[in-house]
C-alpha cells in the first residue's frame, strides 16, 4: 500500500514536472539517480547486518530473555537490544506488550521501545553516508542516553 502510494506520487510528480519544464525534470531525475547510487553500498551493508543480527535476536529470543524482570540490568539490556535491532512497529508493539505481560517492568518495556525507535545501530552506515559520521554518532549517542532517561521517567510515572 505504502509502496503503491509512493510510485503513484512519483509518476504524477514526473508528469507534472515535465509539463512545466523538461530540462528541470531531467536534472531532477539525474540528481535522484545519483543519490540513489550513492546510497546503495551502505544500504546493502544495512541489509546484510540485519540478516546476521536477526538470526540471533529473533522476536522469540527477545520475548524469552527480556520477559523476566531483571532490574536495572534488565532495563539496560532491553535498551541495548532495542538499539541494535530493526523491527517494524507492527511487530515491535505486540512484542513489547507481551514482554510487559510476561512480567517485564514499564521501565524495561519503555527502554526497549524507545531505543528501538530513536537509535539505529544497523541504519548507522546509511545515516553516516547521508548526513555524516559526526552527526550520526552524536544523534544516536544522545538518543541512547535520552532513551534511558525516558525509560526511567516512565518507570516512575507509571508504576
Amino acid at each position: 500500500m505504502y509502496t503503491v502510494i509512493l510510485y503513484t506520487l512519483a509518476v504524477v510528480g514526473v508528469i507534472f514536472s515535465s509539463r512545466a519544464s523538461k530540462e528541470k525534470t531531467r536534472k531532477a531525475l539525474i540528481i535522484g539517480g545519483k543519490s540513489l547510487l550513492n546510497m546503495l553500498p551502505p544500504m546493502l551493508t544495512l541489509v546484510g547486518v540485519i540478516g546476521i543480527i536477526m538470526v540471533f535476536l529473533t522476536p522469540e529470543w527477545i520475548a524469552a530473555h527480556l520477559g523476566k524482570e531483571a532490574g536495572p540490568i534488565g532495563t539496560l539490556i532491553a535498551a541495548l537490544v532495542g538499539a541494535i535491532t530493526l523491527i517494524p512497529g507492527f511487530v515491535a508493539y505486540p512484542l513489547a506488550g507481551s514482554l510487559y505481560q510476561a512480567g517485564a517492568s514499564v521501565m524495561t518495556v519503555a527502554a526497549f521501545i524507545t531505543t528501538l525507535t530513536m537509535v539505529g545501530f544497523v541504519t548507522a552506515p546509511v545515516e553516516s553516508q547521508q548526513l555524516g559520521k559526526r552527526f550520526t554518532l552524536w544523534r544516536n549517542g544522545l538518543s541512547f542516553l535520552s532513551a534511558l532517561v525516558i525509560a526511567y521517567v516512565m518507570g516512575v510515572l507509571l508504576p
Binding site: 509502496t3 512519483a10 510528480g13 514526473v14 525534470t25 531532477a28 535522484g32 539517480g33 543519490s35 546510497m39
Partner: peptide
C-alpha cells in the same frame, strides 16, 4: 521503496 523515494527527492530538489 527506494526508486520512487529518490525520484520524489530529485523533484523536491529541483
Amino acid at each position: 521503496i527506494l526508486p520512487p523515494v529518490f525520484v520524489l527527492m530529485g523533484l523536491l530538489d529541483a
